[in-house]
């Protein structure tokens, strides 16, 4: 009895809070990345972030252009369709880029870390906590 109560208290304190289990901070802490892994991750991230930023810039430009065209009744529909396709292409590029990024990250992780990473990403996608849901521009 004298052992069980402190053990339970220890378990209670060490267990992550219920909401914290969903948080990124808990996930990152739980991964237990080594210093070298963190350095590798930073390198990968910075590389991809620059590419994502370029894509974002391009996407914004095209979307605003599409918006401007959609307000003009005499706008060329073919041009609008072309813009829509280009925006869709940027979306796909962004997703492909993310899959590449995910692959690279996975390779730097060990099996346990990889499983945890994949599980966390799957949970995020499943929960569809998509605060920034993509819009259907110009329609």
């Amino acid at each position: 009895m004298t052992i069980i109560i402190p053990l339970l208290l220890l378990l209670l304190l060490s267990a992550p809070p219920l909401f914290g289990q969903d948080s990124y901070a808990e996930f990152e802490r739980g991964l237990g990345l080594s210093h070298s892994q963190k350095t590798q991750m930073d390198g990968i991230r910075n590389r991809y972030v620059d590419e994502w930023r370029t894509l974002k810039q391009e996407s914004i430009r095209k979307r605003l252009e599409l918006q401007e065209l959609s307000k003009n009744p005499s706008a060329n529909p073919e041009k609008m369709d072309k813009l829509r396709n280009e925006i869709g292409e940027i979306e796909r590029s962004r997703n492909n880029l993310y899959n590449q990024y995910r692959g690279e990250v996975s390779r730097t992780l060990n099996k346990e870390q990889r499983e945890r990473y994949n599980s966390f990403c799957d949970t995020e996608q499943r929960q569809k906590v998509r605060t920034f849901r993509p819009r259907r521009y110009g329609r």
Partner: peptide
């Protein structure tokens, strides 16, 4: 963040929506 998860990716594209809202505001 050390690792970019799908939600971070989504958060990154928020600027696009913000700028689009600003464009609509001026329009």
């Amino acid at each position: 963040p050390a690792i970019i998860t799908p939600n971070f990716l989504n958060a990154m594209v928020s600027d696009e929506a913000i700028l689009e809202d600003i464009y609509n505001l001026f329009s």
